[in-house]
Simulated scan of single mutants.
Amino acid sequence: MKLVVVSAGLSSPSATRLLADRLTAATLEHARAEAEVVEVRELATEIAQHLVTGFPPARLAAALDAVAAADGLIAVTPVFAGSYSGLFKSFFDLIDKDALTGKPVLIGATGGTARHSLVTEHAMRPLFAHLRALVVPTAVYAASEDWGEDGLAARIARAGGELARFMAPGGQGTGPAGAPDTDTAAAIAPRSLTGAITSVDPDGGFDVVPFARKLAALRVE
């Protein structure tokens, strides 16, 4: 299997790359995979050229192809103005619209304060949902004061285990013995804009009930 790690840190070394490396190590504890790191900072000029000309230079094209071919993806960004960085967004703007469909993705972010801890939920998760990726339930945000704390280490370990589970062949939504993991599967399943997921069947499918039907049932009651 192939695990691709996209790190959008702007310095070297960076807290963003450190978080990306720890998430990678946590994932590889549970999955036999080859890891490849894409440092977006090193592709900044190529990204700008592609946005202007519509043609990716060879190094950028190789990075985009690696993301598209990955069995799992880790994406980590520093926080800028309460959201992901512009460089991070520019890179994923260049990904083919179908490249991440159904691909398990672990998202992470770093910042100077815990006040930005919801960036993974209000910015990153919607971005990857738009790209139709399967974002694992546990996202990891690391503020400056979090490094060295047990809470961060526990979140990293949990997130890495979730990504490894969904990368495994036939492992999307399955537990250790191959039984459906309904809690995790329901947590990352694509949400319908017109219905609500109410159950997960043994074959891994989802029962979606239209909101109109649910409202009608409530009125009857």
Rank of each mutant, 00 (worst) to 15 (best):
G151E: 11
G54D: 13
S192H: 03
D93R: 09
E36Q: 14
A133D: 13
E29H: 07
M1A: 14
A129S: 08
V38M: 02
R17S: 10
G82Q: 03
I188Q: 01
A68Q: 10
G72C: 09
A62I: 11
L94Q: 14
G86M: 13
V105A: 08
T198F: 07
G161I: 01
K103R: 14
R115M: 14
A168P: 10
V200A: 06
W147E: 01
S117I: 07
L127Y: 10
I107E: 06
A68L: 04
G111C: 04
G108T: 06
V6Q: 08
G111E: 05
E145G: 04
S117V: 09
A26F: 00
H50M: 12
S117N: 14
R165H: 02
T77L: 10
I156A: 01
I156S: 02
A81E: 14
K97S: 15
L134S: 00
D183T: 15
L118S: 00
K97Q: 14
S117D: 08
R125E: 05
T53E: 15
F166M: 12
D203S: 09
E145D: 05
R41N: 06
L64T: 02
E34R: 14
A70Q: 08
L152H: 01
V76A: 11
G170I: 11
V79F: 03
A159Y: 02
R41P: 06
